[in-house]
Amino acid sequence: MPLITRQEDLENVLERLARSDFVTIDTEFIRETTFWPELCLVQLASPDTTALIDPLAPGIDLAPFFRLMGDERTIKVFHAARQDIEIIFHLGDLIPAPVFDTQVAAMVCGFGDSVSYDQLVQKVTGERIDKSSRFTDWRHRPLSDKQLDYALADVTHLVDVYRHLRDRLERDDRAHWLNEEMQVLTARETYDPHPDDAWKRLKMRVKKPQELAVVQAVAAWREREARERNVPRGRVIKDDAIYEIAQQGPRDAAALARLRTTPRGWERSATANALLAVVNEALDLPKESLPKLPRHVQQPEGTSAAAELIKVLLKLVAEEEGVAPKVLASSDDIDRIAARGEDADVPAMHGWRREVFGEKALALVRGDVALKFDKRRIAVFDTK
């Protein structure tokens, strides 16, 4: 399969792909040294057309590709779509629609939690994929035939996988289960988080409102700095340094130099000066403007034991329904149901999840049903 490096060839193949009801998509990229992923290859397939596009070729304009991604007449099929969609969003300023993620669909169809592409292909088609080119440098040119064959396999087998999963979802009347998952996957805020929310990615190690104010300010500053310079967040300043800065509150270069988590001499840089300005601004906030520390809610007595029982129930329901437990409820869902019951505002208590699992979990919490070990199997029985 030749690599498309000419604009005319790109437009012709995308015109053919656009005639299909669906296209399968994958990307190869590098992001070890950048904030934004660097797109190195785009793979596309339909039942009768395949394409390998070189986005690094001189003169290549990906506008026709982005038009296809935005064409709602064609379903875009990915496996583990989040990183691919992130690239398309960053470069094309759009979210592909409609989207079908075969990893999520596979969980709904009982293939287990987060099944890999090669495992799914083998289970559905019986084919084995050579993954030896997986960790290659996709920026290097020319790409070998082995690399191109590997890249193409990531979308050609996906055609059969998609058809199989689509048919199973329709047969079992579960297509709407997948639709709810795709709404989150295709939400713009999933790929464009506000820098002021960057602190939420960090593990909380603060005990005072002022420390939290510094963490919030420095995390937001780092996020903007990393995006602007297109470098990983850790290249700007590491997480551990944020925590130490929050605890020590350095106001000048000399205080910054005494920290263990910042490089020697870094305190004299322009970046350090910008950081100190942010830190001082946070330290000078009046008391009434400081953020409130996240409240640690004391869980009712017996919550931990109740959560363990609900986990057992989750496994039973997942086996009965032929789905991955992760699809029905997360660990956080279970903990909240155990603690709050009907008042737990979690995904497992809404939509089809509540119908399939949530109501059963509530019945267990209320004591309307119980679990028993019967003939070497755990079973649910009514207590009324």
Rank of each mutant, 00 (worst) to 15 (best):
V104H: 04
R128I: 09
D118V: 13
V104E: 07
G110R: 00
R134D: 01
A97H: 12
K131E: 11
K131H: 12
D137S: 13
S132N: 06
G126S: 06
D113R: 14
G110M: 05
S116W: 01
V115Q: 01
V121Y: 10
Q119P: 01
H140Y: 07
F135A: 11
K131A: 09
S132W: 02
F100Q: 06
K131G: 13
G112P: 00
F111V: 08
L143M: 13
T136K: 00
D101C: 15
D137L: 11
A105W: 04
T125D: 02
R134S: 05
F135M: 15
P142E: 04
V124F: 06
R134C: 00
T102K: 02
G126P: 06
E127N: 11
P96H: 09
S114L: 00
A97C: 03
P96Y: 07
P98N: 13
V115L: 09
L120R: 13
G110A: 07
D118T: 10
L143E: 04
S133D: 15
M107C: 00
D130A: 10
Q119V: 04
S133F: 11
R141P: 03
R141H: 05
S144D: 14
A106Q: 07
R141N: 04
D137A: 15
P142W: 03
D101G: 15
D113M: 13
Q103V: 09
H140E: 14
S133P: 01
L120W: 12
Y117P: 03
R134H: 06
V104Q: 11
P96W: 09
V108D: 01
H140N: 07
D113W: 13
T102R: 05
R134P: 00
I95V: 15
T125R: 04
S114Y: 00
S132D: 09
F100I: 07
A105S: 12
Y117T: 04
S114H: 00
T125L: 07
V124I: 15
R134Y: 02
T102L: 05
P142A: 06
